[in-house]
């Protein structure tokens, strides 16, 4: 019974109508959402992520001061009612800088993942769909890239491009391409063999159309899961590059860079390094919980 249904689904989707397809598509997401809602840790993760996203969007309204308000008379003050997180060596309010820092970290995390997702998907789909030599070349290229510890590769790429926030973003996007590429390749390989793809093919659909309309949507769940986990990793990697002086430049309030600057005041002013680090950890924790929750919701088989 099922194969027949699948072929019908394929045909209906081909003509752009077919209420049944739409309904099933919705029900997958509705079902997943109801599973997601019941997972308290996932909701906690989502709340953390939303908190930092809102912080990033409304930073100018929330932050008590600007990112570079230097008051040398108030330098290295410990946390107080005036400065909740204390001040740094330039007398800048750390709370404000941490709030603005959310902008940088979320921006770099999300954008780099979108970048690696697009390039990785493209390469993965091409490798899987066309197979043979194309597949061998692309897959070997992924193997080679994955043979390097990622942060080392990122450092090398930044060394080529020059140290800046944008280049750190590009480097992080590049090093994460193989992860997406491999995932999508394997997903497409399995989807490719389904009957509805064969049906679409026999109806004379073009490769590009089949990939965009059938293959990618049916591989979406693992991509979403991987993406949300990858944002966490990307934020960590960006902070690491910032910490090594290969990302943000002064006075950008990038959390990793703030930590690097705070290092020398460890003895007099430990709060200068406590809060940026906490911010990184919480954001990454949020994305990790969200990713775990999404995986459990979208793919219940994976749930442990």
């Amino acid at each position: 019974m099922k194969p027949v249904e699948d072929v019908q689904n394929g045909q209906m989707a081909l003509h752009g109508k077919g209420p049944k397809v739409k309904k099933e598509k919705n029900s997958l997401w509705v079902e997943s959402w109801s599973r997601f809602k019941k997972n308290r840790l996932a909701i906690f993760g989502l709340s953390i992520v939303l908190f930092f996203v809102l912080l990033a969007i409304f930073a100018p309204l929330i932050a008590p001061e600007g990112i570079n308000n230097q008051k040398l008379a108030e330098r290295l003050q410990s946390p107080s009612i005036n400065h909740w997180f204390g001040t740094d060596d330039f007398g800048r309010d750390i709370l404000s800088r941490v709030i603005y820092g959310a902008r940088i970290s979320i921006w770099i995390g999300v954008l780099s993942v979108v970048g690696s997702m697009i390039i990785g998907s493209l390469l993965g789909v091409i490798a899987a769909y066309y197979g043979r030599l194309v597949d061998v070349i692309i897959s070997r290229a992924f193997d080679i890239m994955l043979a390097f510890p990622s942060i080392l590769l990122a450092i090398a790429i930044v060394a080529v491009l020059g140290a800046s926030l944008e280049n750190a973003l590009i480097a992080i996007a590049i090093i994460n391409v193989p992860n997406f590429g491999r995932l999508i390749r394997s997903k497409v390989l399995s989807v490719k063999e389904e009957e509805y793809i064969m049906a679409a093919k026999s109806l004379g659909m073009s490769d590009v159309r089949i990939i965009l309309r059938h293959v990618l949507p049916n591989s979406l769940a693992p991509i979403i899961v991987q993406a949300s986990l990858a944002v966490g990793t990307a934020i960590l990697e960006a902070a690491a590059l910032g910490f090594l002086g290969m990302g943000a430049e002064a006075p950008q309030p990038e959390w990793g860079k703030m930590l690097a600057d705070a290092q020398q005041y460890m003895i007099q002013a430990p709060w200068t390094m406590i809060f940026p680090g906490l911010a990184i950890m919480l954001t990454v924790l949020g994305f990790n919980l969200l990713g775990d929750g999404l995986r459990d919701a979208l793919d219940p088989k994976m749930k442990s």
């Binding site: 902070a239 690491a240 930590l259 460890m266 003895i267 940026p276 990184i280 950890m281 990454v284 990790n288």
Partner: peptide
């Protein structure tokens, strides 16, 4: 374990250094 996979290694190192060494 969740904290462990989320904490930046360099921050953890700094905090350890501050607490246990300094």
């Amino acid at each position: 374990a969740l904290i462990g996979i989320s904490v930046p290694i360099f921050w953890l190192g700094l905090m350890q250094q501050w607490l246990f060494a300094v």
